[in-house]
Design a protein around this nucleic acid. Structure first.
Lengths: 227, 227
DNA sequence: AACACAAGTTGCGCTGCGTGCAAATTTGCA
DNA sequence: TGCAAATTTGCACGCAGCGCAACTTGTGTT
């Protein structure tokens, strides 16, 4: 099953890639809302109609970047040991986002998108889709434990909160560092992810600047999870 | 300022209301996607063009229900005492959702929407918009405290998680009770909101069924917040 | 009350989206 | 090689969304 890259599959993947590439190029060049599906089709070397065979809208084509990104994070989550605290699994999975190769496309989308409300729709959809998949993944994990009845509320609230914290870290990081992808910038993102999950793990019990000073930027609260 | 309902304001409010009413009626009658802006305009007694003076799309018109709902919740949050633990404020604000008059329109939207991916876009947008407003509200509150520098990450992560938990409670409640608005059903919603905020406040430290049994449906973990 | 001005509504026209359909083209398989 | 299935493409249609220029209605002034 993993080794069947038939000609059809390859072509489809290539076309799909060509579409998203063309979309991103046009987004860079003309800015959001200033190009049409026909422009994309022409740039990708296909017909307008074929575009719609792959994506239902321009936004959807661009959101495929986000989808790919979140899917890989989810993949990380799934292959975590089942006996690990679930927040720790989530943290580890989110951590993989700080890799330059992975985060780079998304960061660019952020730059070009954030001001524009139109595009953010599909982005929200992508994050929401990921939330649902996390719920499934977590449900499967807990299904392994025999006795316990599965608490759907727990699953939904947890998955939603984890995703929210990931998004919060990205938002703050982007507001702070812009499109900077330098190692220093990525280190900040990494730390923001850790801190966000830390806040979540401690029930948001430590409002801004807990006791003594020490700016939260340098040595924030470590992630000393309950195990 | 509160007492200037000029004729123009009243007309606009009435038209706006007429549009959303007509939209909801058509949604009920014909189902999502089976009616046009022109239909709405006709039912509301206005021109197609005027519709677009109020809303940029059908979804936006329907989402005004959600917006109104969340806005009132936000209003509750803002008028909470500033020295109250912030999670408690959020819990109290979300609690007001369990009121039949308030939750009824939203519950109906849920019934008609949930299966349909098209509409949920604007719903997500509404929740996201509310998140941003919570961030602002919380930022203002903390700005009252003199010494502390404001931790944007804390704000974003907190607001996002609170909203996620509210959404999670609504999702689970709806999956469990459907469109049932009976007192018993609303009691369940109320309890789900409490439980969700409880999970959040305890850092999701108690996975499904902590120690001994006792189904989480009957006597779930109470909200014994840190004060 | 008549006026002028601002605010809101409406009709018109245009571009572009999204989709059903059927013909044309490409790929998989025997 | 030739047939069947999958995929691409052109065509056409209805509708969304918006700019624009009249037109109507509310507001405040003399």
């Amino acid at each position: 099953m993993p080794d069947l890259p038939s000609r059809r599959e390859l072509n489809k993947a290539a076309t799909r890639q060509a579409i998203t590439d063309a979309s991103l190029t046009l987004l860079r060049g003309k800015g959001p809302g200033n190009f049409t599906v026909e422009d994309i089709a022409e740039a990708a070397g296909i017909s307008r109609r074929t575009f719609f065979n792959y994506f239902s809208s321009i936004e959807a084509a661009l959101a495929s970047v986000t989808h790919g990104f979140l899917d890989s994070a989810l993949q990380q989550f799934r292959q975590r040991p089942a006996d690990e605290p679930i927040l720790e699994s989530a943290r580890a999975a989110l951590m993989q986002l700080a890799d330059p190769m992975t985060v780079s496309p998304l960061a660019e989308l952020f730059t070009l998108t954030q001001q524009n409300a139109l595009l953010s729709r599909s982005e929200l959809e992508a994050w929401d889709h990921c939330t649902e998949q996390i719920i499934s993944a977590a449900r499967e994990r807990f299904a392994g434990t025999p006795g316990a009845a599965i608490d759907e509320l727990y699953l939904h609230a947890l998955a939603g909160s984890v995703i929210s914290c990931g998004k919060a870290a990205m938002d703050v990081w982007f507001a702070r560092c812009g499109a900077d992808l330098s190692p220093a910038s990525l280190a900040i993102l990494r730390q923001l992810l850790i801190d966000a999950m830390g806040h979540l793990g401690s029930g948001f019990g430590n409002p801004p600047v807990p006791a003594t000073a020490s700016s939260a930027t340098d040595a924030p609260t470590l992630l000393k999870e309950r195990l």
